[in-house]
Amino acid sequence: MTVAAHAVRPLAGPTTRLPWPFPDDLESFRYSVNVEPARVPRPTAAGEWGAHIVDLGAEEYGAMMAERRRILDADPHRVRILPGMLPACWDLLLYYLRDLAISFPHIMELTEDGDRFHWRNHALGTDQSFVLGDAASLPHDPMTFLGREIPDDLLLVKERDGRLCFDAGLVTFAAAWSVSFDVGMTMDEIHNPVPRLTREGITSRAEQFLRRLPADQVYRRVNWTLSASGSRKLDVSLEELPAWGTDIPALVRDEDWGRLQLRIEVEHFVRLPMTGAVTFNIRTHMTSLDEIRRVPAWREQLARVVLELPEDLATYKGFADYREPAMAWLRREVSV
């Protein structure tokens, strides 16, 4: 396809599929339980997203999965499964493989015969037969097997003593938290440092929502921040902090605002049919201010939302110190 020459490159690729986190009319952002039914396509100023639960990332899929597999091989602690959670992990695996085969029939296939399954992923070259519940029939535990097929971070919460507990997870693209440390905690305990989240009762409302989530209903929520890294690097886990900690100070010093990344996390909540465990799966997207600046509607809205955010939330999100110059840059007209 040929494209007419433009001073500003036309929109293509990931930007057109980006889950822009703000509704058209939104000018200020607060944490809330802003959940909506999943599998509903949502148009944005640059394209559309959200038709399926899993966003494979099209041309980025292969590279993302290579990175995911590299991290999992290097650091086995990125997967944590507490005792008793294996059935829920099988539940998760089956739910997602079935969904993938329906969503992407041209590259993914699942055949079933009672408890026997055959999974083929032609994009990654996976060809695996397995038996539900038989650990020896898979090369990894069921959560890891799934985590090597799709780019989502996988989290399972389960009710225990009347609280929702994060009892299993596979996380390689974490934003400044540690799966290894947080596994086994309640939602309330994990969310402790977010200003306004616990104080305004939002955690408990979210918790009530998840506890009452019916089986076979899928909801999603979009969260965002300015990334702690000045590159597309998804793994800004706490473990790797020494490796990325200097990224932003260097970027701020150089006033290299175009490299600053908006980090968007799409969370999917599914009550799994067999065990009743609930997923809190997170698909992370990154886009630079440079890219956002090419979409006038986004440019203005992001600047307004970021600048309007109260100081405590801006501090929590980590951009209180540089949001003004960064947003001033974003608002500047793109030079022709």
Partner: peptide, 8 residues
């Protein structure tokens, strides 16, 4: 009224 997964 689901079984508690962590129960032994």
């Amino acid at each position: 009224f689901a079984p508690v997964q962590a129960a032994t």
